[in-house]
């Protein structure tokens, strides 16, 4: 599974994408520091979502093309475990590093420094379900030539809860209890996707392999 790292490109390209978005946003909304600081958490979450989504088709495609998925499907391990491992590998190599690296970049957006730890926590908590949901999209497009748009259409609606609670946790404006409930919901979403995603992506991939 550490092979995922060696295929390369995923994390680097995603990080480059986030940086490019960071440059474009001030150009789009103007260099006003206050406005940027206010918009920053939401926009950074959006950048994270989209960059994870961009790497989604890498999760299974290469293994599908060189036939190693066939081997894994015939192996002794239930195929659901294979997809689980794949999604975990994607989380460890792409989403988690992105979630750790992205918040400090928020300094560029003149984000409130006190918010940075919470942004990082919520992104780490949310990145898990981002990866697992992306695995479903990756499975759908494994056998397709041009799947990028399809992945976005399928998976972005599923990302809505993660985005909502992620931003809520970052903003922390939920009254006395602060960000903790939203963080809890983010983790719950992660666990839910942990249940659904390996099963769904395994079933989809089997349809391609048959």
């Amino acid at each position: 599974m550490t092979l995922a790292k060696r295929q390369g490109g995923g994390l680097g390209a995603a990080l480059g994408f986030i940086l490019a978005v960071m440059v474009l946003i001030p150009l789009a909304v103007g260099p006003d520091q206050n406005l940027l600081g206010k918009l920053a958490p939401g926009l950074m979450w959006l950048a994270l979502l989209l960059s994870v989504l961009l790497t989604a088709d890498r999760i299974f495609q290469q293994d599908f093309e060189d036939g190693s998925l066939d081997v894994m499907a015939m192996g002794p391990l239930p195929f659901e475990f294979v997809t689980l491992a794949k999604a975990c590998a994607h989380w460890l190599t792409v989403s988690l590093p992105l979630a750790v690296i992205t918040p400090p970049l928020g300094m560029l957006m003149s984000i409130d420094a006190a918010r940075l730890p919470m942004l990082m926590f919520s992104m780490i908590a949310g990145s898990f379900s981002l990866s697992f949901l992306a695995a479903i999209g990756g499975a759908v497009t494994a056998g397709l030539r041009r799947g990028g748009l399809l992945v976005s259409l399928l998976i972005l609606p599923l990302y809505v809860p993660v985005l909502i609670f992620g931003v809520a946790a970052t903003a922390g404006d939920m009254g006395p209890s602060g960000s903790v409930p939203a963080l809890g919901v983010l983790m719950a979403l992660g666990l839910m996707s942990l249940v659904i995603s390996p099963w769904a992506s395994a079933a989809i991939l089997k349809a391609y392999l048959r």
Partner: peptide, 21 residues
Amino acid sequence: TIARIVALVGVVNVFVVKFSV
């Protein structure tokens, strides 16, 4: 086969999405 699974995943998730919205 694929549409089936996507529909099922969607049905499960649509409630989560609705709740969070």
